[in-house]
Structure formats: structure tokens, C-alpha cells
């Protein structure tokens, strides 16, 4: 436990301030109760999701680089995103920035042009489940649970982008795959890629019962 950091930049993403406001509220409360600190990313912008990535490569990278730059400005090395799409977008940007120095340079020069602080360092992005699991863990969740979710049956649906693709972010330099470092490797804190269980474990720790849901839970 404790490999990611107890105090991180919090990137809620557009939806959490709109239609899924409830998720945002509960995320903050749970983090506080678990003794973790989410530092709200001031004035963030949209991650671009799948849509903008299908339209513009560099534009999408820029959107995410701006958020990374904000996190660095607030003094963070780690960004946590509760939305699958947002954490994917940030990790994807991280992947391209880290594996291609030309892209990194271009992005930095464009950031400057747009009046945003340069990226001195590329922050790492984690999904909120990963963060909860590694920084608090089921045991802590159990201890802190005031009203156990006894009798609540939960189908843990993780979605597509929670575990996929596993090597976007800090473990893979592509460029043709010649060298040893170039092989895809899983991020060490990542959930099991084909059979994730972090959410099951956390919910069970809070007293709920997980129902059998494989293989649909990542479809």
C-alpha cells in the first residue's frame, strides 16, 4: 500500500460536474473518510474523450497536456480521475508524450503559445479505484464503514477503458518494439486486466455482496 501517494490532483472531468454529480460528491466524501486528499484541479478542461481523439490527434494531446500542466502547477506528480474515459485520455496522452520526444517538444511549444505553463515533468494518471485500492485498501474501507451495505447486491461493472489498454502509461516505449523496454508491460498498480476485482473487493469490504457478473463486467 501507499505507492501512489495520499495527496493527489483530482480531475473530475465534465460529466462529474454535470449528469453524474452524485459520483463526484460521494468520491470526495469517501476519500475524506479514508484519510486521503483530493486536490481539485482548478480550471481544468475536457479530456476530449473518444470523440476529439477521432478528429484531432495533436488537439487531444494538447487538451490533456493542459490538464497535466495545471496539475504540475498545483505541485502534483499524480492525477487521479474517477471517470474511465478521462483516466484513459490522460494515460494515452502520457503514453504519447513519453514515448515520442518530438511530440513532447511540439506539445510544449504549443502550450507556451497558448499561454499555459510548460510541462517540466509528465504526471502519472491513476484511476480512482486503483488509488483507493492501493492507498486505502479493503481493510481500511471495512474499518471506516459506518453503515455496512448489508444485503445490497452489487453487479460490479468496470467498463471498457478501466483496464484497457493496459500499457498506455509509463511502461511502454513503442517505436517498433525492438528493445527490451519496448515490450508492453502492465502498470504495477493496475487491476487485473481481464478479470478486475478492485471494485468487488472494496464493495465487499463495505458489506455488500458482489454478484457473479463475468465476463460482462468489462464488455
Amino acid at each position: 500500500m501507499g505507492v501512489i501517494g495520499k495527496r493527489v490532483a483530482y480531475y473530475p472531468g465534465c460529466s462529474l460536474e454535470g449528469a453524474t454529480r452524485a459520483y463526484d460528491v460521494s468520491t470526495r466524501i469517501v476519500a475524506r473518510e479514508l484519510g486521503l486528499e483530493l486536490d481539485y484541479l482548478e480550471d481544468y478542461n475536457c479530456c476530449g474523450a473518444m470523440e476529439s481523439k477521432n478528429v484531432t490527434f495533436m488537439g487531444t494531446l494538447l487538451l490533456n497536456a493542459r490538464n497535466m500542466s495545471l496539475a504540475r502547477k498545483q505541485g502534483h506528480d499524480v492525477i487521479v480521475a474517477p471517470c474511465n474515459g478521462c483516466s484513459f485520455s490522460l494515460q494515452r496522452a502520457e503514453y504519447f508524450l513519453q514515448t515520442d520526444s518530438k511530440i513532447f517538444e511540439r506539445v510544449n511549444s504549443l502550450l507556451k503559445e497558448g499561454g499555459v505553463d510548460l510541462l517540466d515533468k509528465i504526471p502519472e494518471t491513476y484511476h480512482i479505484l486503483e488509488w483507493f485500492y492501493h492507498e486505502a485498501g479493503p481493510q481500511k474501507v471495512k474499518e471506516k464503514t459506518k453503515r455496512p451495505l448489508r444485503g445490497l447486491k452489487v453487479a460490479n461493472y468496470y467498463g471498457c477503458l478501466y483496464t484497457r489498454p493496459h500499457f498506455y502509461a509509463r511502461t511502454y516505449s513503442h517505436a517498433g518494439g525492438q528493445s527490451e523496454e519496448a515490450r508492453p508491460r502492465r502498470r504495477e498498480t493496475a487491476d487485473d486486466d481481464e478479470h478486475p476485482y478492485y471494485m468487488n473487493a472494496l464493495f465487499e469490504a463495505a458489506g455488500a455482496t458482489s454478484v457473479e457478473f463475468e465476463p460482462m463486467h468489462t464488455q
Partner: peptide, 24 residues
């Protein structure tokens, strides 16, 4: 509509990049 503050200057750069790629 929720807006990002300090967006205008950055928006110009974004638009330029998107235009270069012919995305829109």
C-alpha cells in the same frame, strides 16, 4: 454552459492545430 476560464488564448492554438490536421 460551464466554461474553462483562461481559455481564449489556448482555444486559438487548439483551433489552429485542428485546422492543420483537417479534423473538422
Amino acid at each position: 454552459h460551464p466554461r474553462t476560464k483562461n481559455w481564449n488564448k489556448f482555444k486559438q492554438v487548439l483551433r489552429k492545430v485542428v485546422q492543420e490536421e483537417g479534423g473538422l
